[in-house]
């Protein structure tokens, strides 16, 4: 596999064109969020989430440029922020980004077996995306739900108590869902910042199964 296929390092691209993709609603959201802070710059992380939603789930250079322009920051400054945090995608991800925790507790409870099963099931290695663009597989650092090991994050959801046996079920379930999870996640992360959004159907609440979808844990 070529290095560029697997890593989160961007391919060299020509100087960014001045693209503008923020919708009127996105601009309104950005202005609302920016009003929460004494300085506009503080809206940088949220603005990158908006951009990740508007630019199909990742941040190509034009997305960085648009954020920089809208916040009055330099390209380099925003690029610096975007490259620091792991949840900003610098490359396009599959429709479902599977992030399996292999940190301490998950590792002793069989996370690597889950990863191997996923690799076999999907025919890819960690860090790669399936040819049909459906799945990207990654290892994650602790997702902090260790009691429910093995844990996997897909977009805005956690799947818990995974084993090599039950992970196929999760894959099938995801295949049948219509969501494009990277943008869905970005959308949630933007809506969460907007006062009153819990009433306007921003979040899909199901407090009963929020705590642990997979079993009696907790």
């Amino acid at each position: 596999m070529a290095e560029s296929e697997t890593s989160n390092i961007r391919e060299p691209l020509p100087a960014p064109a001045k693209e503008r993709r923020f919708s009127a609603q996105a601009i309104a959201e950005l202005e609302e969020i920016a009003s929460h802070y004494p300085e506009r710059k503080a809206a940088c992380l949220p603005a990158l989430w908006i951009a990740q939603r508007e630019y199909e789930g990742y941040l190509p250079p034009p997305a960085i440029q648009e954020v920089a322009d809208r916040l009055g920051l330099s390209y380099a400054e925003v690029e610096g922020v975007a490259t620091f945090y792991t949840m900003y995608n610098l490359r396009k991800r599959g429709r479902h980004h599977l992030e399996v925790c292999t940190c301490l507790t998950c590792a002793v409870k069989g996370a690597y077996e889950v990863v191997h099963r996923l690799e076999k099931e999907l025919g890819i290695h960690v860090g790669q995306t399936t040819a049909d663009g459906e799945f990207t597989l990654s290892e994650a650092e602790c997702l902090d739900f260790c009691g429910a090991a093995t844990v996997m994050q897909v977009g805005d959801k956690y799947f818990t108590q995974l084993t090599p046996e039950n992970v196929k079920q999760v894959i099938d379930q995801l295949r049948n869902s219509a969501d494009y999870t990277p943008t869905k996640l970005a959308d949630s992360l933007v809506k969460l910042l907007i006062p009153g959004s819990s009433e306007t159907g921003g979040g899909s609440f199901a407090p009963k199964d929020l705590v642990n979808p997979a079993g009696p844990m907790l």
Partner: peptide
């Protein structure tokens, strides 16, 4: 709130909206 905690964050969002 850490970015991965979307579900917990929605509970906080709701609680803040109610408290207002």
């Amino acid at each position: 709130i850490r970015g991965e905690y979307v579900e917990p964050a929605w509970q906080i969002r709701k609680a803040i909206d109610q408290a207002y």
